[in-house]
Amino acid sequence: MTTHIQQIRKSFGSFEALKSISLSIEKGEFIAILGPSGCGKTTLLRLIAGFDSPTDGEISIDGELAGAAHYSSPPEKRNIGMVFQSFALWPHLSVRKQVEFPIQHHPHASKEMKAHKEKRAEEVLKLVGLGHLADRMPNELSGGQKQRVALARALAHEPALLLMDEPLSSLDAELREDMRREIQTIHRMTGSSILYVTHDQGEALAMADRIVIMKDGRIEQIGAPEDIYLRPATPFVAGFVGKATMIEGTWTNDTFKPAAAPEVTWSGQGIHDSFRQDDMYPVRPDQWILTEDTQNGIPATITNVLYQGKDIHYTVKAANNQQISFIQPIHTRYQIGEQVTLAL
């Protein structure tokens, strides 16, 4: 029950949307593909779903070859389920009929399941907490309820792999939090493999076992959420996930001297090689400490203050004119123009 993606490439005319992507999804694993719009994550999802065929490389699902150069098994033959960004509920079918559809028609649904499709549909609807709404039509449901129906339909035939295409992006903020918990619970209960595409790093960090960061059709880093957040492999990952500032300076062996305060030294432990090559050091806004010791940090002037309730986001300008962001608790408040010293 694993999905293997080997050196997939996809071009549209002269544009290369995917450049040699390799990835394995193990049984029961929850993988999030995270990246900005245009990074190729949706293209990758559509290749795995079977709506497109790769220009090069191979995709196999559950031991079966699904896609290769100029070959693509049709989506209806692949053992997958999918939650669409727009939900894609059929407007003329009731909730029950939506869920029964894959049970009845999907070639991978077991005979046993097909024989008792009403029972299976009820079971899945109960799982997503919609047992009481089975006879409603899609237009009679709220956004969150539609999302649950889409989820139930995708799970109904017990697919080997569940694809989710930014499933929470059309819900409001509060509902998104609830649905994150819900999806996580369902993942635990069903033990299905999930490939979850999103541009929201919060969703990826909260739910995934592993995160795949993509940029310009390439994988930047694959790793557990803590790895991605605490030990980014590239400046892009550090900036996109951790909102880190790349401090300019010089590396000597395993120590770093910031350009704005050459007498200060930072340890290079856990910092990836790619930063050393570019002579920079990533620091997340929450890592900074404000110090009274002006010799032990970077001197800077406050240029912007954003009050957020539980903390305050500051922007400062360092001596070498670099912009740096940092977050501080609300008990001390600095004014625009004030001098501070930033340390690690």
Binding site: P74, P75, E76, F84, S86, A88, F101, P102, H106, P107
Partner: peptide, 15 residues
């Protein structure tokens, strides 16, 4: 009719 209606039919096994 949104293309996703047709895509969903494929995904959920419809010939």
């Amino acid at each position: 009719v949104d293309p996703s209606m047709e895509e969903a039919a494929h995904i959920f096994g419809a010939r």
